[in-house]
Design a protein around this nucleic acid. Structure first.
Length: 275
DNA sequence: AAGAAGTCCTGGGCGC
DNA sequence: TGCGCCCAGGACTTCT
């Protein structure tokens, strides 16, 4: 379940390890994880390319390569990208790996096989399905309270589905959505266009604060998440509501409850977050 | 056109 | 001890 803070942590941990390294060999065990190009083209296309830079957009990782190509990775729920010595044993659920020019290896590991890898020419990057529809990046300099307020004012959608809508705002998933709404004292079913100015301001602030804290704590590890060197995050210890049904709210002492929303869990404090 | 439901997957946890 | 069931949920597709 890597969300923005986890993907950002992976980006940072890998950037310092692989920048400048060249891909010598590509091994694919599970061809279906390769999308857009067929696995053969993917393999031959990657071979000999050098990692120039690593970036993140929403929950997507972008590896800028030499010869104007980009390796795009989405980890979905249980995907991992791990940098390790090339002679380390191949972990269970490894679906692909790249041997690098320094006796190290970048492995893609994914228990649930939802994650996907794409190799695209730089000039086609902006047209990639999924990437081109992404909304605001909540941590970018172009994300302003008034822009968000304007967007909210003409949407009847409920707040939580809206936070999870990547074409509205890019990078928030189920865990951080719950934490953001709790911090902003807002109920997940609240229609977006009913927010008062003060509430919109709380929401905006909560989005930035929660995501920044998540990054500062190197992400949330509930089960599978680790960074590019296999290290778990620490933000799971800071969660106020997500996964805490039956425990007391830190602010008011009421018990945290779990709702079902679109087949997903939503955790709230029923006193702090009234509809 | 927006919203809900179905789809892909494995493994942990639970009741019996 | 093991079977069946539910749950975890990102994003795309399909239906209403």
């Amino acid at each position: 379940m890597p969300e923005l803070p986890e993907v950002e942590t992976i980006k940072r941990s890998l950037a310092q390890k692989i920048t400048g390294l060249t891909i010598r060999e590509v091994k694919i065990y599970l061809p279906k994880i390769i999308q857009i190009t067929n696995p053969d083209e993917f393999q031959t296309g990657l071979k000999g390319k050098t990692f120039l830079n690593v970036n993140r957009r929403g929950k997507y990782l972008l590896f800028y390569l030499s010869a104007e190509y980009v390796l795009v990775v989405h980890l979905k729920m249980t995907g991992q990208l791990i940098y390790s010595p090339a002679n380390a044993p191949v972990a269970k659920h490894t679906h692909a790996f790249f041997n690098l020019s320094n006796e190290h290896r970048l492995s893609f590991i994914d228990l649930r096989q939802f994650g996907r890898l794409y190799l695209v020419p730089l000039e086609e990057l902006e047209n990639m399905p999924g990437l081109k529809k992404l909304g605001f990046d909540p941590l970018s300099e172009n994300f302003f309270p008034d822009i968000m307020a304007q967007e909210l004012s003409h949407r009847r959608t409920r707040l939580k589905p809206l936070l999870l809508d990547q074409s509205f705002i890019a990078g928030i998933g189920n865990i951080y959505a719950d934490e953001i709404l709790y911090r902003a004292y807002l109920h997940p079913l609240r229609p977006a266009n009913t927010l008062k100015a003060q509430e919109t301001a709380w929401l905006f602030k909560a989005i930035q604060e929660v995501l920044q804290e998540g990054i500062a704590y190197r992400g949330t590890t509930i089960r599978d998440y680790v960074d590019g060197e296999g290290r778990p995050g620490n933000y799971q210890n800071k969660l106020k509501v997500h996964g805490r049904a039956g425990q007391a709210c830190e602010r008011c002492g009421q018990l945290i409850t779990r709702l079902r929303l679109q087949g997903r869990s939503a955790y709230i404090c029923p006193y702090c977050q009234k509809l």
